[in-house]
């Protein structure tokens, strides 16, 4: 699986928690709807990539599995952006 060490795993976990709290702050209506959708989409994509790369260990270049998982966390954020933007 992943070649991550304890220190990096802890840093990734802290990063994921901070990104979650950032999302929650956006839920309080801190930003306009369109900007909220954009930031939320970016956060979802980033969190997904972090888990896929560091926790699931899909870091091998050229791996079809890694490509499929990365595509998922590209397409879903785009769906969020389109659906949650004003007029979406």
């Amino acid at each position: 699986m992943t070649n991550i060490d304890e220190g990096r795993a802890t840093i990734v976990w802290l990063g994921l928690v901070v990104l979650t709290l950032g999302s929650a702050w956006l839920g309080e209506g801190a930003l306009p709807a369109g900007l909220t959708a954009l930031v939320v989409a970016l956060i979802v994509g980033l969190k997904g990539m972090l888990v896929i790369r560091h926790y699931m260990g899909l870091g091998e270049p050229g791996s079809r599995l890694r490509l499929a998982m990365r595509m998922y966390f590209f397409v879903v954020p785009v769906l969020i952006l389109v659906a949650a933007s004003p007029g979406g």
Binding site: T20, S23, A24, G27, V40, V44, G48, I52, Y55
Partner: peptide, 23 residues
Amino acid sequence: AVLYWHATDLAWIVIFPLLYVLH
């Protein structure tokens, strides 16, 4: 077992903002 757990985590990473954040 751990990979399946991470996949369930991935699904929640998307579900949380869809339901609790995006007004």
